[in-house]
């Protein structure tokens, strides 16, 4: 693998770093309580929560670090942080 001249990089390859492995607590999204307000998507510092085809938010566990910000800010308490079994 040759070096990129001048220490440059093309977008996209930060994805090689699966930050989901850092997680201790895992957010579980409870569909029944979700009002699709979008707050979790807005506040996620990873940008790894996006709506599915039914407009319900779904986290990408490959990258979710389990910080809990989404659960804390969810106005309808539709996200629960659970200790992850590994």
């Amino acid at each position: 693998m040759a070096l990129n001249l001048g220490c440059t990089a093309k977008p996209g390859n930060a994805r090689d770093n699966k930050t989901g492995s850092w997680r201790v607590f895992k957010p579980e999204f409870i569909r029944e309580k979700c009002t699709q307000c979008g707050m979790c998507t807005i506040v996620c510092p990873e940008g790894c929560i996006s709506p599915d085809e039914d407009e319900f938010p779904v986290p990408d566990y490959d990258y979710c670090k389990g910080c809990g910000l989404c659960a804390e800010e969810c106005p309808s308490e539709a996200i629960e942080m659970k200790k992850e079994e590994k």
């Binding site: 070096l3 001048g6 220490c7 440059t8 990089a9 093309k10 977008p11």
Partner: peptide, 13 residues
């Protein structure tokens, strides 16, 4: 054609 310039290099690079 976005490129990132001036990344930091670890001792590996």
């Amino acid at each position: 054609d976005p490129i990132s310039f001036g990344l930091f290099a670890s001792p590996d690079y």
